[in-house]
């Protein structure tokens, strides 16, 4: 891929222990990519640690927006700077930069607008806990019924977007738990979505944002917003 055509966006909230390793990893496996860290108002040294890496740009958000608002900042930047492609790689080190080439290959081959890196199309991937898997299965059925699309890992944030999807998502991106909903948004705009199996790591530091108490809320919120997105005719 040409230099200056692909932007890697790393949303990060209190990831001072992971962020630099994630950046080094990306620099090594995708040297042609530009890197943008979105520091979502971390209370630790995420921003200054990320700045240790030469050439990496860091956006410090003045208020905590949550993952949706942070990633959307990346879409806005990518759109304004004219990038053709954008990849989201989470700041916790879960996503493996070497796997980006798989996403790129699928997009080039199929001409689709977004490629999702799925944990479930590849048995070597780590398996999330049962509750999460059940939730993802439910989303799978919902997507099949509602938008006639098979998505095995709709909560995965490890994605490659082309300019068309960047443009749309820079305007409309759900706030709280955006990944499943974004699929509906793109689908409703007539865009093509593909999936490819990728490896993912289990996180080493920190905890998942979705705790046991929050997960029923997560499910309800995501299902509701998917349903609303499906009924929406004006954006």
């Amino acid at each position: 891929m040409k230099k200056g055509s692909i932007l890697i966006v790393i949303p990060a909230f209190n990831e001072q222990n992971n962020i630099l390793r994630v950046i080094r990893d990306i620099e090594e496996s995708i040297p042609e990519a530009d890197i943008l860290v979105i520091n979502d108002c971390s209370v630790d040294k995420t921003s200054s640690v990320a700045r240790l890496a030469e050439g990496v740009k860091v956006v410090d958000l003045p208020c905590n927006l949550g993952i949706g608002g942070a990633v959307q900042t990346g879409f806005k930047y990518a759109y304004a700077q004219g990038y053709q492609y954008m990849v989201q790689i989470d700041g916790d080190g879960q996503h493996i930069p070497q796997e980006v080439s798989k996403l790129v290959a699928v997009m080039q081959q199929s001409g689709c607008d977004m490629v999702i890196g799925s944990r479930f199309l590849d048995i070597r991937s780590y398996r999330p806990p049962l509750a999460r898997r059940l939730g993802i299965k439910l989303f799978y059925l919902l997507f099949k019924v509602l938008i006639n699309t098979k998505v095995t890992d709709s909560t995965s944030g490890f994605r490659l977007y082309n300019r068309k999807s960047i443009e749309i998502l820079s305007r409309i991106y759900p706030a709280d738990y955006p990944e499943p909903d974004a699929i509906v948004v793109l689908k409703k705009h007539g865009l093509q979505i593909r999936e490819v199996g990728v490896r993912m790591r289990e996180r080493e530091h920190g905890h998942s944002s979705i705790t046991a108490i929050k997960s029923p809320y997560y499910m309800a919120k995501v299902i509701l917003s998917i349903l609303f997105s499906c009924t929406r005719t004006r954006w």
Partner: peptide
Amino acid sequence: TQELGLTKL
């Protein structure tokens, strides 16, 4: 917030 973050950059 997003605009401010991007403008600071």
